[in-house]
Design a protein around this nucleic acid. Sequence first.
DNA 1: TCCGTTACGTA
DNA 2: CGTACGTAACGGAC
Length: 607
Amino acid sequence: MKVLHYTIKRQTVRINVAETTWDLDRFIDFIEANPVLGFDTETTGLDWWNSDRGFRIRLAQFGNGIESWVLPVEINPEFKAAAIWALRKARLLIAHNGTFDQHVSERTLGVPLEELAPKMLDTKIFAHLVDPRQVKEGGSGLKLEELTKHYIDATLAEEVKGSMTQIAKRYKVKKADIWPVVKTFDPEYLLYAGMDPILAYRLLHILMPKVPARSKAKGLIGWEHRLAHITAKMERTGYLVDSAYAEMRIAELKAEEEKWVQVASQWVDNVNSDKQLIEAFQSFGFKLTKKTPKGNFSMDAEVLDSIDHPLAEAVKKATKAAKWRKTWFEAALNGLDSEGRVHASINSIQARTARMSISGSIAAQTFPAGDGYVRSAFLAEEGHVSASIDFGNMELRVMAAASNDPVMLKAFYADEDLHNITAIAAFGPMEPGQKKHPKRAAGKGTNFAIGFGGTWKAVTEGFGVPEEDAKRAVDAFWETYLGVARFAEKLKDEARRTGYIYTATGRRLPVDRRRLYSALNYYIQSTARDITARAIINLDRAGFTPYMRLPVHDELIFSFPKERAAELTERAARIMEFTFKGLLIPADGEIGDRSWGSILDLEDSKH
DNA sequence: TCCGTTACGTA
DNA sequence: CGTACGTAACGGAC
């Protein structure tokens, strides 16, 4: 047995590293004496779905606040058996981003998600309930290193968590490539690995009392863990990829890119270099004016659109083709497992407002809307069809219900078009027989922009509404929806006094006092997220998880057996819909063919 | 090799 | 005084 020591704030912690089977007696004693354990794994990478072709677990670590054990499970099957035994023996397991370690445990140790999730406490969830802000927003951050720095010891965070960077340098590899090559008994690696369960254990005990009483009273801790378990099951299921379709699009986009790079090459040798483009356009005599926040000349789509020169068109088309190919189609193919599926990483609680995010091989939340161009690369199971169920007007309905605004509520109860209502308030009534107000766009832009915390400028820039119309519509909004105005003021006042607002689910959201106008948006966005989360949890209880593929903000994507698709879509939509403060948030389903994209290509699709 | 900046896709 | 994300790329800093 190897023993390492490290000092956290003058307190010595001990890391035991098992070297031979004889060491396991003491490991077993430790586990039996500690029913609540910090837990972590070290692996060869992040691609847990490739456990049948190269992905391996290397170390399994267990610990309390002052002592941990590192089992190099890769060198000894008895260590592996001991790790499995410990996972089963533990009453509670504390891990940071425990979802990853659950996937690893399932795929490499055979201990399924269903067994670990009920006793897992994830410090990322606790950290988010205490302070959801990123470090650059003035918060604690959500990564283990950031939390260690904020709550435990800055030096420790730098030394231990930064040590993998140093190790990578020593092995002369990139930081991302160190995981499979670092030697099992490299002392720095063992220290890094052995500290993680200690840090997770300590963090939980620091964070637990800081979780707001209202969050605890509303049961948010248990609720978020259940949600994380369900999204982990969605990750495990993965999404079937139509490789032939992706390959076809890749070839098409490559040809497109080459064509336009060729055109651009008369003037620049790199279409992605803003520096070269600025020089080129200036040399042609174009006067650039738009600046970036840092004061450089801007070279975005708006600027390129305004320049009447073949280079501008070539740059737009070449860069777009390259980006679409790499970001969506090649990412999907690169992430394929041995069964032709990709596994997204669903961060069930991520944004300031707790919105979920999806990263990795299916950046679903950034897929181009409007048609099925990208989504057609993702398929329902054999014999299944794709279905999408989304909430209708969720954020505006939340705004209406939360503020109890009589005008807005009346419009929703009477099933009237709220964008028309806002347009009428600003510009007068519609002609008899008209379905759409001639200035409905200004009404729509205003309704959305206000929800974002915006002003008339947002309506102009974001929705292409003339300045005068935008100003008039925004003024009319606040004069018409007095309940919304009062609610926004109430939230601002709460934020001004306390630095926080609370949502109906008991979530506490910090609001920067210099940006009080964002309080309304935080409330709405976070409440909408919680309504989606609630839907996911209720669908899970009703047995729908095997059919669920991805959450996309106000929409859930499913793979349903073809013959039962209509019935299941209807049942799922009824489970999803929710009455928030007396107002129904309706859910509506659409069924396509095999691919996700086919839903958007339906003739009568609302997309 | 890392990181800040920029651009751009979504709700 | 326009919210929240993730990804790709450049180019200067190390």
